[in-house]
Amino acid sequence: MAAAPQTIEDLARAEARRPRWLAVILDFARQRPLGAVGAAIIVFMALLAAGAGLVAPYDPLANDYAAMLSAPSAAHWLGTDSFGRDLLSRVIFGSRTALMVGLGASLLGATIGSAIGVTSAYFAGRVDLLVQRVMDIFFAFPVIVLALAVVAILGTGAGNVILAIATPMVPRCARVVRSSALAIREMPYVDAARASGFGHARIILRHMLPNVMAPILIMATAFLGEAILLEASLSFLGLGVQEPTAAWGLMLRGAAVEFAESAPWMAIFPGLAISLAVFGFNLFGDSLRDALDPRLRTQ
């Protein structure tokens, strides 16, 4: 086909044929290539996690005592660990744990945090003062210490790890959402809802919360990367998910201490996976923030 000169009409037709959601994604990719790279990493990771059973060459829990601590080879692309388990399979299955814990913690933290933030802004006055001081107490602890405290109280296990990672997110989300909600509270449509005699719950959930969704979404995405890192840290410390579940932090734990010199691949590959995942989520989160809410830009 000859390359016909492109007229505005041609371009408009091509534009019209393209579905809207695709146009939005292409726009995002064109304007924020780094964000698109992040998104690609996330999608790749999600696909791996979803199809782990199909993609992984071995059972991640199967021991092969004939091939313990073997270096990367054609049979085991990333090598094996001290129990002869295939590292590639464990890295792939590890993405499942990472995503599950990360998503769970972000969702839980963002939900509780924004509920507290909007409620605090809505009632204002003494309620607000009290809630914000309680949040300050949570802020006083480093993230990892707070998470450790929760695990220490509740015990280990995937569910408790999600709770532990969500805890430090609650005050942060509450504070950001509160500041947005304070502005929304003064909007005439909130006054109109109050003048109509609607209940507090209805005003908070139907009139205020939907209008502070942008910062909540941004917080949740930005926190995902951090949650994955936190999960790996807790697992590394032995307070996260437990053996023999495939989890990146857990793989590092065994590897870094005993086999750093004799079998460095055991530590390198899960480490790379963690870095890549966190990198992907942070890139995407930053771009999403810039695209959705330019006011929140940090520089």
């Binding site: 005439p188 449509y189 109109a192 003048a195 109509s196 009139h207």
Partner: peptide, 20 residues
Amino acid sequence: PVRRRVQVIFQDPYSSLNPR
């Protein structure tokens, strides 16, 4: 019940309706 009987119309038609 009183709020039903006393209603309001605001100045700014842009911010007096919930955009969502």
